[in-house]
Simulated scan of single mutants.
Amino acid sequence: MVIMVSDFFFPNMGGVESHLYCLSQCLIKRGHKVIIITHAYGKRAGVRYLSNGLKVYYVPTLVISSQATLPNLFGFFPLFRYIVLREEINIIHGHQVKLIY
């Protein structure tokens, strides 16, 4: 079981979003179960299913700038831990933004 964690995913469009989607689809075709965790986009929150059974968790997290969230270990970790244990995750693939001001 593989989990992809990123601030950037659909309905937002871009390179990271496309990379995660295509990588997930290829892994699914090879027989892996793949889950994506990203932040909620407006009314898009909760669990959604995309093509080939790709499961996406849109979690409620504070967005600070350009669809990026503040890495918040204390607020996000309990939910992340719950998902990892519930889904029996073996591999975590993450993308995080680096904000420079």
Score class of each variant (00 low, 15 high):
Ile83Lys: 03
Glu17Cys: 10
Thr38Lys: 09
Arg81Pro: 00
Ala45Lys: 12
Lys29Ala: 15
Asp7Glu: 10
Lys98His: 11
Leu73Lys: 11
Phe10Tyr: 15
Val16Ala: 05
Ile89Pro: 06
His19Gly: 11
Val5Phe: 13
Thr69Trp: 00
Glu88Trp: 00
Ile100His: 13
Leu73Val: 03
Met1Glu: 05
Val47Cys: 02
Ser18Ala: 12
Tyr101Gln: 11
Tyr49Ser: 06
Val84Pro: 00
Ser24His: 02
Glu17His: 08
Ile36Glu: 08
Tyr82Leu: 10
Ser66Lys: 13
Glu17Trp: 07
Ile36Thr: 06
Ile37Lys: 01
Lys33Gly: 02
Asp7Trp: 10
Ile37Pro: 05
His93Cys: 00
Phe9Lys: 02
Gly53Arg: 03
Val59Ile: 15
Arg48Tyr: 12
Tyr49Thr: 10
Glu17Lys: 06
Phe80Cys: 05
Ile36Arg: 01
Val5Lys: 02
Ile91Trp: 09
Asn12Gln: 09
Leu70His: 00
His95Glu: 04
Gly94Lys: 00
Thr61Cys: 10
Val56Phe: 05
Leu62Pro: 00
Met13Gln: 14
Leu23Phe: 03
Gln25Glu: 15
Ala68Leu: 09
Val2Arg: 03
Ile3Trp: 08
Gly46Trp: 10
Ile28Met: 07
Val16Gly: 01
Ser66His: 14
Leu85Trp: 10
Asn12Asp: 14
Thr61Met: 15
Pro78Asp: 10
Phe77Tyr: 13
Pro78Cys: 15
Ser6Pro: 03
Gly46Glu: 11
Ser6Val: 01
Leu23Ile: 08
Arg44Tyr: 15
Phe9Gln: 02
Tyr49Gln: 15
Val56Thr: 02
Leu50Met: 12
Pro71Phe: 11
Asn90His: 11
Arg30Asp: 13
Ala40Thr: 05
Pro71Ile: 14
Gly53Lys: 04
Gly15Glu: 00
Ser51Gly: 07
Val56Pro: 07
Lys29Arg: 15
Ile37Asp: 02
Phe76Val: 05
Ile37His: 03
Pro71Cys: 06
Glu17Asp: 08
Leu79Asp: 04
Thr69Asp: 02
Phe9Val: 04
Glu87His: 07
Gly46Phe: 09
Ile92Ala: 05
Asn12Ser: 11
Ile91Ala: 01
Ile91Phe: 07
